[in-house]
């Protein structure tokens, strides 16, 4: 079967600010030689410490930034390095780490969630728009009482639910979740993880799930890639990788994992 998401030899560099006026700008390699594929409906876990290139990978996958090398194939869409960057990809959405920064504090929940709908070229009637938002709010476990309120009136977990509702409102086929629960309490985090799993089953969503928490990755992912210093150092099915890690770094990560 042809994979839904295919990533080939992806790389991204950033040039660091010059030390002085005549100083040369040095390059920082954030991601290098990343290749993997994800079949439709599966969850790919991406694990690694901070600075390992996880978030860079996320920004490239959703099309917020163009790759410097390599290509991304998503269903019928191709993104290749060197071609004109066409902006964010269709059918892709993202859930961010910090639920306090991912919702505009000055915008009502209704408008925040409806924003992707408003710019999807659907020309919905106000009633249709409202009913879609209410439906999605209920799906993520919040009532329609939330519509007219502002983000500061919600807890972190509730905000993350709102962010998930916004991400799903246009029915994307790929959801990139960048550390979606690392800012939440453990019990709240578990609820959000289960919500994501339910939604995956219901919508047949393909997911790239990024985390530094191996426990969370093991719970969520079908396959895992392990990243270090901008490179993928190991990849495999979740259970196989957790049972018999081959790379020294994966072993170190696993041995540092708390056991309950």
């Amino acid at each position: 079967m042809k994979p839904f998401l295919q990533v080939d030899n992806l790389a991204r560099h950033y040039s660091l600010p010059a030390r002085d006026f005549w100083g040369r700008r040095e390059r920082f390699v954030a991601l290098e030689g990343a290749s993997f594929e994800v079949p439709e409906g599966q969850i790919l876990g991406v694990v690694g410490e901070s600075g390992s290139g996880k978030s860079t990978l996320a920004r490239l996958l959703v099309g917020l930034e163009p790759p410097d090398v390599g290509s991304i194939t998503l269903g019928e869409q191709h993104v290749r390095a060197g071609e004109a960057h066409s902006g964010p990809l269709r059918d892709v959405q993202m859930v961010f780490q910090d639920p306090f920064g991912s919702l505009d504090p000055r915008m009502r929940i209704l408008d925040s969630i409806a924003e992707p709908l408003d710019h999807a070229g659907l020309s919905l009637s106000p009633d249709e728009r409202l009913s879609r938002v209410v439906g999605m709010l209920e799906r993520v476990g919040l009532g329609s009482g939330a519509l007219r309120r502002f983000p500061h009136q919600f807890s972190g977990g509730q905000r993350q639910r709102i962010a998930i509702a916004r991400a799903l409102i246009t029915r994307p086929r790929l959801l990139v979740a960048d550390e979606p629960v690392s800012a939440l309490d453990v019990s709240i985090a578990a609820q959000i993880l289960n919500l994501l799993l339910d939604i995956r089953a219901e919508f047949g969503l393909t997911m790239v799930f990024i985390s530094h928490d191996l426990g969370v990755i093991r719970y969520m992912a079908d396959r895992v890639i392990v990243m270090q210093g901008g490179k993928i150092v190991e990849a495999g099915d979740t259970e196989v990788l957790f049972a018999s890690p081959r790379h020294a770094y994966t072993e170190r990560l696993l041995s540092a994992m708390p056991r309950f």
């Binding site: 959703v62 964010p88 993202m94 920064g101 919702l103 924003e115 916004r166």
Partner: peptide, 21 residues
């Protein structure tokens, strides 16, 4: 802030992001 990323992903045009966010 991330809500700007979210708006970009929602394909909100640049000028609209400036005005609304």
């Amino acid at each position: 802030r991330d809500f700007i990323r979210a708006a970009q992903l929602a394909r909100v045009p640049k000028l609209v992001i400036l005005r609304r966010h």
